[in-house]
Nucleic acid binder design. Structure first.
Length: 552
RNA sequence: CUGCUCGUAGCUCAACUGGAUAGAGCACCAGCCUUCUAAGCUGGGGGUUACAGGUUCGAUUCCUGUCGGGCAGACCA
């Protein structure tokens, strides 16, 4: 519909300007119904180059508009807006379109099944997932669903660091607990992890338990002094815990990548050699440096430390080089904003390889920090101090649907306050229930009608002309645009906002109009409309990973 | 000190990437269930979009500065 009107405008404008290729015809949905179904500001854009009054230009465009069946009325408003009012029938067509497409309604093929990899969560195996990871999980997974809906071939990937200083720290902490040293004991490692789960791991280790994670089974030796065995066991144990966290959050990854594998397979060494031979490195103070300032960084970075080990960004570069070699021309990294400084370094490292990787590859979606409130006070998220809110606790308290919705419904680049008491105590006020309730209400009506809803596909829709019906059909017709825009902006929260509006339109309609009336023609038209609404609610909730219950 | 980011109703957040009278939810006030689920609907009060400039037909949105919050700025990850 949008495209149809855009083309009509283009035809009308062509006689006025010499070069139509530079024209950017923007059609928007006016906030107020008084301003029609679509509005264009094209006349105001042309006012300057044509040196004419925008209202006069608007009038000329309207006069030039080709005859058509979709538009019932055109008006000039304000400073020179052109407002388009659709004919009743072209509004009603949306219901038929939805019936035809079903689950596919709103999906498009613009991605052309090109490969895209989304890396998200990527928590290190040093503790269970917390709310911050949850936000990454919710946003990342919705992003994947959006990309899929736009025709991309999506790979979900989880990268974790199973080597390095933090893992040593973890190993020491478990070792201490296995020796019976309490977290508040002076002999406990100073920067050790003090959470109670460390004690659980120590206990399981001493009991020689076996844990499975990433399809690998690890059995504890039970030997308190075998650091390597403790490390392997602790990592597997926590990866298993995180798997359970993700499972509770209903998120599935396609690929898990280990940092240690980059070393054992020689990928890190290869990347280092490639950087050296590309000529962007130098030795200084017994260390090997990468001249990242050549690529926009504010200072050069050390690659190999005096002690001989590599700094953390080297495996990062090796990992991303590997992503590129695996054929992902598009990669999106979803991560917390506290890691934003790595963006410049990783990109600089990839540029330094000189292998034709675009400067702005990979893409990043950063989410701001989550503040957790409980009892009116902020709960500090400190893994080492041991007091923090795990994702699984949260899911158990407020439910998977509500947790996902809360964490995905806000713009990623604004900080979010997660009030546990509010989410738990006032579950009825959770916005997600408002949307789900709209779906359940429709199911309930259709249930009482007890007819075959597929027969509604051919219903005569001409009775649908009330304000509530028009508003609902208008909301439905916006859905495909939301799928496109939310994906382009990498902004899943737009889907959540849209669904709230759609649910609102449905609830208003429900209170305004009785559906199960005696007049068969009217009844069928109304049932067709709410059935179409149910489809869109389902499709939209699916994008958020939230269930669409038949009953509540 | 430097960089990134955010600042919108009492609170939590939107605003279709520069559009028309800045919108929802919670909270507050007044109505709506003998009728398809009241987890709902309708109406009302509540705003100098942090502040000051600039760009243009038009700014919450873009630019500059100030103030305030968050996060980064290790040969830690």
């Amino acid at each position: 519909m949008k495209q149809t009107i855009t083309e009509l405008i283009l035809q009308a404008v062509t006689p006025l300007v010499e070069d139509t290729s530079s024209l950017n015809i923007i059609l928007e949905r006016p906030k107020s119904a008084e301003h029609g179904d679509f509005a264009s500001n094209i006349a105001m854009q042309l006012a300057k180059p044509l040196k004419q009054n925008p209202r006069a230009i608007a009038q000329t465009i309207i006069d030039n508009l080709p005859a058509n069946s979709v538009i019932s009325k055109v008006e000039i408003a304000g400073a020179g807006f052109i407002n388009f009012f659709l004919s009743a029938q072209s509004k009603q067509d949306i219901v038929k379109n939805i019936f035809q497409a079903g689950e596919a309604f709103g999906r498009n093929t613009s991605g052309q099944q090109a490969k895209v990899q989304v890396e998200f969560v990527s928590a290190n195996p040093t503790g269970p997932l917390h709310v911050g990871h949850g936000r990454g999980a919710a946003v990342g997974d919705c992003l994947c669903r959006l990309l899929d809906a736009n025709g991309w071939d999506v790979t979900r990937e989880f990268y974790y660091n199973d080597a390095g200083a933090q893992i040593d720290n973890l190993t020491k902490s478990v070792h201490a607990r296995a020796l019976g040293i309490a977290p508040d004991d002076a002999r406990f490692p100073e920067d050790g992890y003090r959470g109670e789960y460390i004690g659980d791991i120590a206990k399981a280790y001493l009991a020689k338990e076996t844990v499975t994670a990433d399809d690998m089974a690890v059995t504890a030796s039970g030997d308190v002094n075998d650091a390597e065995s403790i490390r392997k066991f602790a990592v597997a144990y926590l990866r298993h815990e995180q798997d359970l966290d993700l499972q509770a959050f209903q998120i599935k990854f396609d690929v898990f990548s280990l940092e240690s594998a980059l070393y054992t397979e020689g990928k890190v060494e290869n990347a280092v050699q490639a950087l050296i031979s590309s000529g962007h490195t130098y030795e200084q103070d017994d260390a090997l440096w990468l001249r990242t300032t050549d690529f926009g960084d504010d200072k050069d970075r050390v690659m190999r430390k005096k002690e001989g080990g590599y700094t953390y960004f080297v495996p990062d570069v090796a990992y991303h080089r590997e992503k590129w070699n695996r054929g992902f021309k598009r990669v999106i990294n979803e991560q917390g904003a506290d890691h934003h400084s790595t963006i410049t370094r990783v990109r600089a490292g990839l540029q330094a390889l000189n292998t034709g990787i675009p400067q702005d590859w990979p893409e990043y979606v950063l989410h701001q920090m989550v503040t957790v409130m409980r009892g009116g006070e902020e709960v500090k998220l400190s893994k080492r101090a041991g007091s923090y809110v795990t994702l699984r606790d949260l899911i158990e308290e407020v439910g998977c649907d509500a947790t996902r919705y809360f964490l995905a419904a806000r713009s990623a680049d604004s900080q979010l306050v997660f009030d546990i008491d509010l989410a738990r105590a006032q579950t009825n006020d959770n916005p997600v229930y408002y949307i789900q309730y709209a779906h359940a209400r429709i199911c309930s009506v259709l249930n009482q009608w007890a007819g075959d809803s597929t027969t509604l596909a051919n219903a005569d829709l001409s009775p649908l002309e009330s304000a509530a019906e028009t508003a609902l059909m208008q909301a439905l017709s916006q859905y495909p645009e939301v799928v496109v825009t939310a994906c382009q902006a990498s902004a899943p929260h737009m889907v959540a906002n849209y669904l709230k509006e759609l649910a609102s339109a449905l609830h208003s309609y429900y209170n305004d109009t009785k559906f199960l009336v005696d007049d068969v023609q009217i009844k069928q038209a109304r049932l067709a409309l709410i059935t179409a609404t149910r489809t869109v609610l389902r499709n939209g909730l699916y994008l958020l990973g939230v269930s669409a219950p038949d009953k509540m």
